[in-house]
Design a protein around this nucleic acid. Structure first.
Lengths: 341, 341
DNA sequence: GTGAAAGCGCTAACAC
DNA sequence: GTGTTAGCGCTTTCAC
């Protein structure tokens, strides 16, 4: 059935030993250039492909990296994953995908069932509401490096890759302020997630810098979906003092908020400005188009993977925390003169 | 460093042989219930995890399935992949992801570099413009089953999973006709792809059934992105006879077309109706909302994976071609009275 | 019902 | 610079 060609076949063909073949294939120096050329040639002719199970067994490596994230059905994560896959593929590594559906239980079960013999490293974006991250610490202790991206736990010392959540939020809110909005609310994510907190801090800092009021009822924490954004907006509209602008933790929630505003016939921009975070393509599809802080999703995937390989290849690589800058993209939703032009 | 516990450790612990442990772990019948219980217990205590590299080597299986698709940064593919991942995970299989970026060269190179020793089966959605599918046939001949989904090649006899492209297109176009549109154009995908062709056939059949004109200049073939859809619409607006409705091959192109119409200040629905295909969430974000034929993306992933496992486990499993139904979701873009209500 | 031993394909001492 | 051999963790005959 599966008639695989092995280094043994190459060796037999050339009347040399398997170890020479192995060495030639892996470009080890102490092998005659001629022999090497012949080996490479026959390998090509015979259509030889290395058996990763065997190399893995022999070397104690798997050629696989695992990636654990909540879901891939949104712009951000699917783009990060694309960056990861591309980089890993270029290095000859396989990407094994695990989805938590943002459930801490599922995340835990994935980790517990993970055979660390089958994975050389892990890239993870944690689920919200993870009480504890000790399961990740265990994996690291067992010798499997982990690089966290986007949703990173503060309690673990390892490499992390993030967009500039604080500055991005600050820039987004300051932009609103510069455009004349004064009563700025924040539709936040769930409490406890590091980047949610950073975006909140950026929001607060911008308000403070410009001496604008901070009202607790103007800060709403809830899940990440569009529906949550919509409901949060309805809540805000019930405030004693209704805000004149919204900074949302992500574009999905910003879009939910905009839908709520449309339903209530409130003019977006003119009456209430809206700014999101991500630069989801949907932000140009909705009308008015959504001002947002663009996250470098692809680069985050790329960089995370690069760092992971450093950990894999240098056993005591000092961990790094990398922040990748993004930029504010101004569109219609934050312009108070949008309908007068 | 990585101090892995193996069946040898369990055996030593219990003073029995590794083969007994192996048998107990795999639930083979000819092993004493008591011994088995003890083995399971110690395995649990010791936190034993099987080494897939070793089982793979010994059994000639890898516990991995590969998935090859153009990209994952859209609703359809990311949802299919979610379905695949979920099903595979439940069966204890790893999903290894490969992205072609819709490039036939990259697809070919992925296949050529693929070591079939590392993969038990393949799920693929081919890239457009693949001249030939012989590389896939080779893989199948080497004993690796492939199940195709969505973008399936007609030339290969193996299991395939598709949505109901023909009926979906037919239903979409008939819906336009029933709503009074008479000059219906089709913004198609690239030529040569099976489902593009089926949607075209469904479109043509609906027009024929209702004795409506078929004009070649009303059928435009191009890529799948929103930008192509927008350009295609500009083309159509230059027709000698401008159509009064558009059936687009997917929602992205439909949205592109809507953006073109908005730019030209043409009332969507009232002047020109639009129907898409997919039910991308963006179809509810755009305004007016987009009527579309919903594809069962998650189920397609699920079913494809299920079929693949049948091929993997029963060597001569007769291939199946499965069509999963979808349904038309009527929204605002196909209602000619949308602005009069 | 259980153990001994060979072998999956490859790497890595260790010889020469 | 090349060959020999042991061994990675597991499965699987073949004995008993």
């Amino acid at each position: 059935m599966r008639n695989l060609v092995t280094i043994k076949d190459i060796a037999k063909n050339l009347n040399i030993s398997v170890s020479t073949v192995s060495r030639a294939l892996r470009d080890t120096y102490d092998v005659n250039q001629e022999t090497k050329a012949k080996v490479l040639e026959t390998a090509y002719q015979l259509n030889y492909k290395p058996n990763y199970n065997a190399t893995g067994l022999a070397k104690g490596q798997s050629h696989n990296i695992g990636i654990i994230l909540p879901w891939i059905t949104n712009y951000y994560f699917s783009t990060v994953l694309t960056g990861i896959q591309q980089f890993a593929y270029s290095k000859g590594y396989n990407v094994i995908l695990f989805l938590t559906n943002d459930s801490p239980e599922r995340e835990l079960s994935i980790i517990q069932n993970l055979s660390i013999a089958n994975i050389d490293g892990l890239l993870v974006s944690i689920s919200s509401n993870s009480d504890s991250c000790s399961h990740f610490q265990n994996i690291i202790n067992e010798g499997i490096p982990i690089v966290f991206f986007d949703r990173v736990p503060s309690s673990i010392s390892t490499s992390k890759v993030m967009q500039d959540d604080y500055s991005g939020a600050f820039a987004a809110v300051e932009h609103l302020i510069e455009n004349g909005y004064k009563k700025i609310a924040h539709i936040a994510g769930p409490k406890g997630l590091c980047f949610t907190e950073k975006r909140l801090q950026g929001y607060l800092a911008a308000l403070k810098k410009h001496n604008l009021p901070i009202r607790e009822e103007w800060i709403i924490f809830s899940g990440f979906s569009q529906e949550y954004g919509e409901n949060d907006m309805y809540e805000l509209l019930k405030s004693e003092e209704v805000p004149d602008a919204i900074f949302a933790v992500n574009d999905r929630k910003a879009i939910g908020a905009m839908i709520a505003l449309k339903n209530k016939k409130i003019a977006i921009g003119k009456e209430i400005g809206v700014v999101g975070f991500t630069n989801d393509p949907a932000s140009t599809i909705i009308s008015p188009s959504l001002t947002t802080f663009a996250e470098p999703a692809f680069d985050i995937g790329h960089k995370s993977c690069e760092l992971l390989f450093k950990h894999i290849n240098k056993k005591n690589f000092i961990y790094e925390e990398v922040t990748i800058p993004g930029k504010l993209i101004v569109r219609e939703s934050s312009r108070s003169n949008i309908f007068s032009s």
